[in-house]
């Protein structure tokens, strides 16, 4: 398994996608810091500081790592490198597991980069406004840990969706439409919106916001942090398992 994971990292390193998405992550992290501090209703007091570190995972920026995960499988089908991959490792479970671990680690690394970008822009700025940033603060720590967890899981979610759908364009488009468009439509429909807390965004909000039930979104109450973790784990593992069990076994011609 270690060999397979090392090979997956080598695959990732020897193409350019990781680089462009990393640049985008840095840029988005910095921009999100600006967007959280610059406006009049931005961060103006110490208790709002955790928002600075939750913003990357809480905004659609997680799409960057989701896409990286999707490409982790679908690129192989697009360029048929899946043929040598499967010839060397006939077990689809082994392939998908190695990729899940690789993209979870990669997701965590991107989360670290995003957090650093947010801190680099946000911390000096807030200090200049006399708002102190304490990394010992438990809510700040919650936001940081939550971001690591959520972004790592979105790496796996992307990977699972890629394994399930196989087609690169379809997987990226379906994923983005679902995460950004459908979930918001869902949230706008009465009754049906009760399902929203169980969507990836619903789970993410539950993980990131310690206020939990106190801040309903569109009148829908969030789950608890740990229930949010379970929801996101299911979104990460179910598509990956279905992919490894079913679609990855389809004929490779």
């Amino acid at each position: 398994m270690i060999r397979l994971i090392r090979a997956e990292f080598l695959k990732l390193r020897t193409t350019q996608v990781w680089f462009w998405l990393l640049l985008a992550t840095i840029a988005v992290g910095a921009l999100l810091a600006v967007a959280n501090i610059a406006p009049h209703d931005g961060i103006r007091s110490e208790e709002k500081v955790p928002d600075l570190f939750a913003t990357f995972a809480a905004s659609p920026a997680y799409i960057l790592v989701f896409v990286l995960g999707v490409l982790g499988v679908t690129t192989e089908f697009r360029y048929q490198t899946i043929t040598p991959t499967v010839l060397q490792t006939p077990s689809r479970w082994a392939i998908v597991t190695a990729k899940m671990i690789t993209y979870a680690i990669t997701g965590a690394l991107y989360a670290a980069v995003a957090l650093l970008a947010e801190a680099a822009v946000g911390v000096p700025w807030l200090n200049s406004k006399n708002i102190p940033v304490h990394f010992g603060n438990s809510e700040v720590q919650h936001a940081i840990l939550g971001t690591f967890g959520v972004i790592a899981l979105f790496g796996i979610i992307g990977l699972g969706v890629g394994a399930l759908i196989r087609n690169q364009i379809v997987a990226v488009v379906v994923g983005i439409i679902f995460l950004i468009v459908l979930e918001n439509i869902l949230l706008a429909i009465p009754v049906v919106k009760k399902a929203w807390p169980y969507t990836p965004n619903g789970g993410t909000q539950a993980i990131l916001y310690t206020h939990g039930d106190a801040t309903p979104v569109n009148g829908v109450h969030l789950l608890s942090t740990w229930s949010g973790v379970v929801v996101l784990l299911l979104w990460a593992f179910v598509p990956a398992i279905l992919g490894a069990a079913i679609t990855m076994n389809r004929d490779i011609t």
Partner: peptide
């Protein structure tokens, strides 16, 4: 056709070497 176009020949084989130890 089963190569990633942006990967070098050497890297393609090195990935295979890694998997096969």
């Amino acid at each position: 056709a089963s190569f990633h176009p942006a990967r070098t020949a050497r890297n393609h084989l090195r990935i295979m070497c890694t998997v096969a130890d």
